[in-house]
């Protein structure tokens, strides 16, 4: 006979940034390889709570569903992770789903992570090319640098590293590990290195690398396994050298 196993899901609902939050519990039909996104879609198709009350579908961000776009980060059983790779069978029930707490809430599970994109602007996370017209090949890059840089450029800006960082909160403007790691990436590239001091200057500005207190949660929470603590250390080394120099010679 068909499986009658149920999945119990508790979702923290909030109709808008200024509305009150509440929990809703849903009972869904279990299927193999179910993940949290599938749970949310089940709710959307039949938005009725466990005790039979009609409700609205849950608003949440998602896109690629293969852990590479960075959209669907949320708190699942209290931990920041990507919903698309959060398998129901590996989660304790009832599964608690909440929005990330370090970003402004939009609705339900959707939050606004614009802060991270603004931070990328602040640290000039780009290679300042002259133009897109044909200027020949780029600089040679050793395989060694490529092997270090490639993992850093896998950052999907999901915000999990900010979410788990005790130093990221309403008291300060800490840009977080992802951004610091991008500083390292662009400073590592032969062309990017030409603007290294600008990026370092930005990262020792307000909310910069100094806010890191070495709890190292970021590296554990990163879904892409980026060596964030290594990035922070590397950028820290460049930062104090530059700061010292600017202090000495003005």
């Amino acid at each position: 006979m068909a499986e009658t196993k149920q999945v119990i899901v508790k979702v923290k609902r909030q109709a808008g940034p200024k509305e009150a939050a509440r929990w809703e519990e849903f009972s869904l039909k279990w299927r193999p390889s179910m993940n949290v996104i599938i749970c949310l879609r089940d709710i959307a198709e039949n938005p009725v709570t466990r005790d039979g009350k009609k409700t609205t579908p849950v608003t949440y961000d998602s896109n690629c569903l293969e852990e590479i776009c960075g959209s669907c980060a949320m708190l699942i059983n209290g931990k920041a992770r990507m919903a698309c790779s959060a398998l129901v069978d590996q989660l304790e029930q009832p599964i608690r789903i909440e929005p990330m707490s370090k970003f402004p809430l939009v609705r339900d599970l959707a939050v606004d992570r614009q802060f991270m994109f603004e931070s990328l602007k602040r640290v000039k996370a780009w290679i300042p090319i002259d133009g897109t017209y044909n200027l020949g090949e780029g600089p040679r890059v050793s395989p060694e640098v490529q092997e270090k840089g490639y993992p850093l450029s896998n950052c999907i800006t999901c915000g999990n590293c900010l979410e788990v960082c005790p130093q990221v909160n309403e008291h300060n403007q800490f840009v977080g590990a992802a951004i610091i790691s991008q500083v390292r990436l662009f400073n590592m590239h032969p062309t990017g290195a030409m603007n290294k001091s600008e990026r370092i200057a930005a990262i020792i500005g307000p909310g910069g690398i100094q806010e890191c207190a070495n709890a190292q949660n970021c590296v554990h929470a990163c879904p892409k396994g980026i060596p964030l603590t290594e990035s922070i250390a590397e950028v820290n080394r460049d930062a104090w050298k530059q700061a010292l120099l600017s202090w000495l010679v003005g």
């Binding site: 780009w126 290679i127 044909n134 395989p143 490529q146 590239h189």
Partner: peptide
Amino acid sequence: PGIIDLLDRMGVMFNRTPEGL
């Protein structure tokens, strides 16, 4: 080929040969 060059100049971490190409 020009598009690859452009992306290369933009800093894409393409895989490299031992010569850095």
